[in-house]
Design a protein around this nucleic acid. Structure first.
Lengths: 141, 141
DNA sequence: AATGTAATGTTATACTATTGCATAACTGCG
DNA sequence: CGCAGTTATGCAATAGTATAACATTACATT
């Protein structure tokens, strides 16, 4: 976890949160994370605790919020500061993070053309991921 | 409103909803719309009524949901079937709808490369719109 | 110990959305 | 017309998501 401390101090709670987000193979809602952390802590945490954790982690680029799911994932790609694109599978619930500089440029250009100062962007694609597609195919469904 | 009836029957409630979304110069939350429609109707509508209205309108491309605001706007550009890009101003709350075929192509290509079947996408840019930028500039702020 | 700051706890509440079932309105048809 | 089938709306309850406001704790510096 040491590599992630871009000025953020890693408390036990934050470590646990990051670790749970990593372990989950899909985005977790705040309340799902709340339940898992409560179990780990052996006591009931309150929603504000978890929302604060998530805010902090998101601000440091360690986690990301997925708007169309009201859920959160641990973020890969800490090296670059890029915002990313999510591919969200409707079958398995998985979230894949990708990146596209061309798309970035286009968005930036569009904003510029409109005289719009861009501070944040959300790009989320919903559909069916490759593994789930083949799974469905071989179902004969 | 006649031009919008792509197989959707226009009831008084739906007309009122569309009309309110149009009149608002920014996205409305479901509960904001609920309040306005209740006032118009002269009685209290329930949340399900409004959420059903919005679902229906969104399904017919008459309205669109903005994920990062939990809010809804009337949709321009009925001609094309394009999904669109929103520029969301953090100052005035306004939402501008734009379109970019290049971006569309890029997204589609990315999905394809990942073997991902895309059924829906969300592209939302937050920032400050041109009018608000000049307003802030002349504030000296 | 005294102070300051960051982190977490606690209670209550606000906001967003859906489920499930009841009723009403409209359509087509005999 | 009267009836069945369908679509739309009403309504009550509740689920799910998020924040405000304030109290407490933990730690660092002096």
């Amino acid at each position: 976890m040491a590599c992630r401390q871009s000025g953020l101090q890693m408390t036990p709670l934050r470590e646990a949160a990051v670790s749970e987000l990593w372990r989950a193979e899909r985005p977790l809602t705040a309340y799902e994370l709340l339940a898992r952390l409560s179990e780990i802590a052996g006591r009931n945490l309150g929603p504000p605790t978890v929302y604060r954790l998530l805010d902090t982690l998101c601000q440091h680029g360690i986690a990301r919020r997925i708007e169309s799911l009201n859920a959160y994932v641990a973020c890969h790609r800490r090296e670059h500061d890029h915002e990313c694109i999510f591919l969200l599978c409707q079958e398995c619930g998985g979230a894949t993070e990708i990146e596209d500089n061309g798309l970035e440029r286009l968005l930036r250009k569009q904003a510029e053309t409109a005289g719009f100062e861009m501070t944040r962007r959300v790009v989320e694609v919903s559909g069916v991921c490759a593994p789930c597609r083949t799974a469905v195919d071989s179902d004969g469904a």
